[in-house]
Design a protein around this nucleic acid. Structure first.
Lengths: 215, 215
DNA sequence: CCGAAGATGGGGTGTCGACCCCATAGGCGC
DNA sequence: GCGCCTATGGGGTCGACACCCCATCTTCGG
């Protein structure tokens, strides 16, 4: 077959216990060999381009660089490396963002122990892996609203979300980004509308789920 | 010695991978026997009072009941069970709250793989375990400000924090708690002052760190 | 080449949050 | 009993935020 007998795997998560858990689960698969670990996004990127890595398992929420950011960089600098995104949150929104960032799979931490090996093998074969419960969500979503949604935030809007979630005022954000307060408010308004949220508190929780900031 | 040869251990965390990681690390200790797992606070409480448990390892942030709440209940209903709190965040504040809730130890998830076995054994001997890096923090803190701080929020204030972090307005919170809007604002003001925070966004992140809500 | 979308910024309005003042009632410890 | 803390609630002020209106300029894809 075309799959190497021993796929070289990188595990990146800021919690040692999660890395241990992953390593333990992957031990059961003789075709998956964990050859590197990383506890933040920068480290993950370094290891993945320094070593030859077939599969990078990335946590969405990591210090320094988020899993999404690492995936984007990896696609540029090491396109042959497959990416499997690991997330705490069951959200179609995040799933699509991960796939767009270059990930081939998306697995929930709560369900990871059951299906992670399947996911790894599927992704290594060059296919996409969606965790089982997302399929239901997808179908529901495409039926309810005509597959129109999934408007993701623009890079500029993501910057603003991050600053809002760090408890900066509009005035401070304007100074930071060197734009007017009015524009910051304009961005915030657009963001709230896109995500269907009411205020900065909801945005803060969104930013944490999305790995933009740590709680 | 007085320690049973096989201490019966409960692992409670909402992420299967963390439970796997803990189990893997604890396998190396022949005197620690993982006999139960739980994925939320209620389940943890049930297992701990249903089974005879010597040591409960509790994640701070769990659905239904936080680790702190489980610890408080356990002290009442199963006082012989020792509690080791597992947290993502390096904060003296949380450490003290955990100890006051009835925990005998406090371990960081990021450092847990190195010292968790030591922590378990120490706690089972009836002593307190503080993870190494907190000791420095403690010393610093007691020197800088005269050990005066550590004002914890009252139960009522915790209720308010939780609702604020769920993006409820003062008006909604007042209706929920059947008090006036002015009192809600009063509570919010006191909370912000106690914690040295500026607004609801910072409070939201605090509530998530403290396990009061999930992100 | 033209339209769509992103980013910029101005105007206004009303509500809510953050920060002061004040008071009273109940409980707990010394 | 006196003080302290908790919880309650009234007054006011000011700025931030949420929600409208409007516009220009660039960039990118068809």
């Amino acid at each position: 077959m075309s799959i190497p007998l021993e796929a070289r795997v990188l595990i990146a998560d800021d919690h040692a216990l999660v890395r241990q858990g992953l390593a333990r689960v992957l031990e059961a698969a003789p075709d998956l060999d964990v050859v590197a670990e990383a506890s933040d996004g920068l480290e993950a990127l370094d290891r993945a381009i320094g070593t030859r890595i077939d599969l990078a398992i990335l946590d969405v929420s990591m210090p320094k660089l988020t899993g999404m950011q690492v995936a984007v960089e990896l696609r540029k600098r090491s396109p042959e490396t497959r990416v499997l995104m690991l997330s705490m949150y069951d959200s179609e929104q995040f799933l699509f963002e991960a796939l767009r960032a270059g990930a081939s799979g998306y697995v929930l931490k709560a369900e990871a122990d059951d299906n992670i090996i399947d996911a790894c093998r599927t992704v290594l074969r060059g296919e996409s892996y969606l965790y089982p419960s997302v399929v239901t969500a997808l179908v529901r979503d495409h039926v309810e609203r005509g597959a129109d949604a999934f408007d993701v935030l623009t890079p500029r809007e993501l910057q603003v979300v991050k600053l809002i979630a760090e408890a900066r005022s509009s005035k401070e954000i304007a100074a930071e980004l060197v734009i007017s307060v009015k524009t910051v408010e304009r961005h915030r308004q657009n963001i709230l509308e896109k995500l269907g949220m009411r205020d900065r508190v909801e945005l803060t929780r969104y930013a944490i789920r999305r790995g933009l900031i740590q709680a």
